[in-house]
Simulated scan of single mutants.
Amino acid sequence: MRATRLALPALVLATACTPVRDYQEAARGLRFHLDRVEPSVHLALPLDRSRMAFRVVVGVDNPSTVPFHVLGFTGDLKLESRGATHAIGRMDLARPLDIPPQGSGRMEVEVSFSYGDLRDNWVAIQAAAQGGSGAWRLDGVLKADAFSFAIQLPVKSRKAFGGAP
Rank of each mutant, 00 (worst) to 15 (best):
Q126V: 14
P96S: 15
M107S: 07
R106S: 03
D48V: 12
P46A: 05
G116Q: 13
I151K: 02
P100N: 07
E38H: 10
L153K: 07
L79F: 06
D35A: 14
A135H: 08
A14M: 09
V12W: 08
A146E: 05
F161C: 04
N62F: 07
L142K: 03
T4Y: 10
D145I: 00
G103W: 02
Q24W: 13
S133M: 11
A27T: 08
G105D: 01
A87P: 04
V57K: 03
V37W: 02
V56M: 05
V57F: 00
L97R: 10
S114E: 02
A127W: 04
G132Q: 09
L47M: 11
L6R: 09
F161P: 03
E108N: 07
H33I: 02
V109L: 12
W122K: 10
G116N: 14
A14E: 01
A124G: 05
P63H: 06
R55Y: 06
K156G: 14
V141Y: 00
V123G: 10
G75F: 06
G75M: 06
F161I: 08
F149H: 07
M52Q: 13
D98E: 11
G105T: 02
F54R: 09
V141K: 11
S64R: 08
T65C: 02
A87I: 03
L34Y: 07
K156A: 15
A7H: 00
A135P: 10
S81A: 14
V56I: 15
L6V: 04
R95Q: 15
G29I: 01
A128D: 07
D139V: 13
E80Y: 12
A128G: 09
G105R: 01
G59S: 03
G132E: 09
P19S: 04
L8Y: 04
S81H: 15
V41A: 12
G140F: 02
R95Y: 10
A160G: 05
D48I: 09
A44Y: 00
R95T: 15
P101Y: 09
R51D: 05
G162R: 04
S157V: 11
I151L: 15
E25W: 11
F73R: 03
S133F: 09
G134R: 06
K78F: 01
V41G: 05
L71C: 12
E80G: 10
R31N: 11
E25D: 13
R49T: 05
Y23G: 05
L30Y: 01
R2A: 14
M91H: 04
P63A: 08
S64I: 08
K156N: 12
G162F: 05
S114R: 09
V12Q: 02
P9D: 02
V57Q: 05
W136C: 03
A10D: 01
P154K: 01
G140K: 01
V60G: 00
A135N: 07
Q152E: 15
D139H: 11
L45G: 01
R55K: 13
T18M: 14
V66W: 06
L153R: 12
S40Q: 15
L71N: 14
S133A: 13
E110I: 14
G131E: 08
A150Y: 02
A26M: 10
M1W: 12
R49S: 03
D48Q: 12
G29V: 07
P154Y: 00
Q126A: 15
V56Q: 04
F32C: 01
D117E: 14
V41L: 15
K159I: 10
R90G: 13
